[in-house]
């Protein structure tokens, strides 16, 4: 679900590309270089569209299939861009038994997107994540760096009202 094909066109800049090339150069002879490289590339671009994967595959002299195989294997890597406001709902067990599933559905409805997607205006993206390690605050919703804990489905409208434009 996280890795459905993206609808948003690629808009990488020359600076980003240069940065990526530097990163590839620095890492390419390390054993196990692909993972740290993908993590670095995702930091640069915010996600890993096929264009970026192609550059990495060329740089490491690996088949694109292998790179794509690794990208789609790990849930941390995203083929979709993230919104200006990254909303993640923890669906770990501790949160789930405290109605996190309902919170997630409410957010899907409110934002009009499914988990893993980004709104067309690029403002919001929605993800489910598994245990952020703050189970004491369950259920937990993150909006970028802000943590909202011990909330209920009824609090969603109020929280999201803080993130406009």
């Amino acid at each position: 679900m996280e890795n459905s094909k993206t609808k948003n066109p690629f808009q990488g800049t020359k600076e980003q590309e240069n940065e990526l090339m530097k990163l590839i150069e620095a890492n390419k002879n390390e054993p196990g270089a692909l993972m740290p490289l993908l993590q670095g590339a995702q930091d640069i671009y915010g996600y890993l569209p096929i264009e970026v994967q192609t550059m990495i595959a060329k740089g490491l002299d690996k088949p694109l299939e292998e790179v794509y195989g690794v990208v789609t294997f790990y849930s941390q890597f995203s083929l979709n861009p993230k919104g200006k406001y990254k909303v993640s709902v923890c669906l770990g067990t501790a949160c789930y038994v405290k109605a996190a599933g309902e919170i997630f559905e409410r957010l899907e409805r409110l934002l009009g997107i499914k988990g893993g997607e980004c709104t067309e205006d690029g403002l919001y993206s929605l993800d489910a994540c598994r245990c952020v390690g703050a189970c004491g605050l369950a259920p937990v919703v993150l909006v970028n760096e802000d943590v909202y804990g011990r909330i209920g489905p009824e609090d969603i409208d109020e929280i999201m009202a803080k993130y406009k434009e």
Partner: peptide
Amino acid sequence: VKLGAGAFVCGEETALLTSIEGNRG
């Protein structure tokens, strides 16, 4: 330090080692 990337199966020992080597875990 090697960072995982969110795959439950990578907690399994042989998968974890393959993941450190840079492959699908």
